[in-house]
Design a protein around this nucleic acid. Structure first.
Lengths: 220, 220
DNA sequence: GGAATCCCTATACTTGTGTATAGGCACCGC
DNA sequence: GCGGTGCCTATACACAAGTATAGGGATTCC
């Protein structure tokens, strides 16, 4: 795990109980799932249609989505497509009463965590949700540190970014200076400044961050 | 992409046509698929049972596996489990005449590329195979460079590995020397030797390789 | 026994890097 | 106008890293 040092810690604790979002047009299903999830300590949010879910402002805690396929208006698969397009990374568990294999395969290929055919056993749903929440937690962890690194990188000036890129590609200060038409000392200054802003002490750390940021490593 | 320099190039060209392995107990299905795949330029290998496929020695070119679920003896899912356990990374496309949703979900969760219900359109199968071969190619690319890096790392002496690990974690030569109870010059020698054996010129490259190798970066 | 390999060390020198101090120029916002 | 910031440069020094040369001791394999 890559961690930086000083920068403002924007990572709040937020260790509340996980929240399960349920989208199903059948009231009795919503109620049943709601009581099931509450019984094991999850919070729940209920929606009767995809539109309701999309409009609702969701908290940003550990969560997942339990989604019926067949819904009035936009279907569950439509909602999944929308979430993917908008890069909303909430794990999705599908359930269906009248699904078929192509439907389940499409959902899984689109990244669903699980796909349960009704009727399912409570335990199967709880297992699926546990997996989903776990995946969500893991994603949050990595996303969190990535966000920190990206934020730090944003604070660099364009010159500093150029030089960080070149330096982490393995070029020497003098080479960077030559490529950019600068003097070596200028490179050193920007380099030191970039290191400080990125919150790292060693070149090795900077290289790892550059790697995570996907900076171009092709030496010019 | 991380590439090293000198080391013996064990990567043969192997730019032959892709090979599709077909496992189905129905002769007519095998024949139909065989002619379908041949018609678009793929090689095919046919098997009537999972055991036949497992015993056969497969070439190491670009390939994928088209697998029936219901088979005499070990089922298609069993074979998939076996391949996963043995870390044989061939992409799998399932097909089934009597499958159900849980079966397809299990297969997809276990990493199948696609899952087609019979009867399927030829084009769907060809699309699935194209995706599978593409995934296989990508995996081969990354696996190839990883294998090279790992092989290079294998040639390092234990001391060189220790020192490479410490250096890529960001420690200075003198710190490494202190930690390992060596003199600084010794560290320099091993460090230079490691760089040479790993086929890289800069610390940045070495750090990226260490990263790919999963070397411990926790500074001691 | 001899060759090879690994491990360790030393001296000496070159080059690369980090940092401090000091300054100039351009732009922007108040 | 003035302060802040980004960008550029210079000198000077301390320290880190890379390399060459030259050893010694241990092990293993033939």
């Amino acid at each position: 795990m890559i961690t930086r040092n000083a920068p403002p810690s924007t990572q709040a604790a937020a260790t509340t109980e996980p929240c399960i979002y349920i989208v199903d047009d059948d009231q009795s299903v919503r109620d049943a799932l709601s009581s099931l999830f509450r019984s094991v300590g999850y919070k729940v949010q209920l929606y009767g249609a995809t539109a309701d879910f999309m409009q609702a402002k969701r908290s940003d805690g550990n969560s997942c989505l339990v989604l019926d396929i067949r819904l009035p208006g936009a279907s569950g698969l439509d909602l999944q497509t929308h979430l993917n397009r908008e890069q909303i990374p909430i794990p999705v568990i599908f359930m269906t009463g009248h699904g078929d294999i192509p439907m389940s395969v499409r959902a899984m290929k689109a990244g669903a965590i699980d796909f349960l055919a009704k009727p399912f056993r409570d335990q199967d749903m709880l297992d699926a949700v546990a997996n989903a929440l776990d995946a969500d937690r893991k994603r949050r962890d990595t996303d969190g540190s990535m966000a920190g690194i990206r934020a730090a990188f944003e604070t660099l000036t364009s010159r500093e970014r150029e030089i960080m890129t070149a330096v982490t590609a393995g070029l020497m200060n003098k080479q960077v200076a030559g490529n950019l038409g600068l003097s070596e000392i200028t490179v050193k200054i920007h380099r030191a400044s970039a290191m400080k802003k990125m919150g790292c002490q060693t070149l090795a750390d900077l290289v790892r961050m550059a790697s995570l940021l996907g900076l171009d490593t092709s030496k010019s």
